[in-house]
Design a protein around this nucleic acid. Structure first.
Lengths: 147, 147
DNA sequence: CTGACTGCAAATAGTTTGCATGACG
DNA sequence: CGTCATGCAAACTATTTGCAGTCAG
């Protein structure tokens, strides 16, 4: 575990944000979960400890944490679903810009060996995988540096 | 381009679906675009040629095309945004049983090389990735075989 | 103290559903 | 001709915004 509660709180203070019980609870929920959580899921978990908390607070806290780079937001960009014609037998993956949501496809992922190994070690019969890289495209990097 | 209009129409018929002018227009819009398109974007393009078409029709057609595997839907899973605490240099990934939802974590994914290559080719500054394998765990496989 | 934070409610955006009419095959 | 498809309107869900009261620093 690299980002501890303390470190995150420190980062928040550095960013000029205040530490509130709500934020503490939200941060803890995220830290202690090893899965990706949607805002609604976070809300649900946080409520057990902090019943009155509003979903709005979750959204606002997540926005700050993402802005500070403390959490990783999947599926960057407001809306999510988009479609592309599929070329048979050409399963592909995405490289997504977390700022402008540009998507670049790539096909060769070379996961066969890893898949075989995992399959052997875990006795799973693996049927597929999801692979996405997230980062900043050149334009957004330049924008950030300029600003 | 591998999936032509004709092939897609054939696949639709095979699936028991009808070919309508609306569907034709939608399919054409997707085929002729090389980017990922959101339903709204598709709607907008399709309207030029077919003004009266409803957004609802886009959604329904997309659902069918995705079901038949003719188009690729990004961001698998209904809703999009999800968050995970970010651990610098400590990736971890999941192997998920599609039946009982057991999750097994693994850390060594060996994507460094791929990441470097992608980064070089695309000028992205890659900050993270999401890798998930889906399959059947041993128990569920045995269950399936027994049943 | 004071500005930032919270929670409510309402607004907005994206998506799905019910239903009567229309068209493919 | 029957069945599936369409388009409208309304329902739903997810997310954002405005505002008055509250609290961290």
């Amino acid at each position: 575990m690299v980002y501890t509660e303390k470190r995150i709180e420190h980062a928040l203070r550095q960013g000029g944000y205040k530490i509130t019980p709500q934020r503490r609870t939200i941060i803890n929920a995220i830290i202690h979960s090893h899965e990706h959580l949607t805002p609604a899921e976070i809300h649900e978990r946080v409520r057990r400890e902090h019943p009155g908390i509003g979903l709005v607070t979750i959204y606002r806290t997540l926005e700050i944490l993402a802005e500070l780079g403390l959490i990783c937001e999947m599926h960057a960009g407001g809306n999510c679903r988009s479609y592309l014609i599929r070329r048979p037998s050409e399963h592909h993956h995405h490289l997504i810009c977390s700022d402008c949501a540009t998507v670049i496809d790539f096909t060769d992922c070379d996961l066969g060996e890893l898949e075989r190994r995992l399959s052997k070690e875990t006795s799973f019969e693996i049927s597929g995988h999801l692979l996405e890289f997230v980062g900043l495209c050149r334009k957004c990097r330049e924008k950030t540096m300029a600003g």
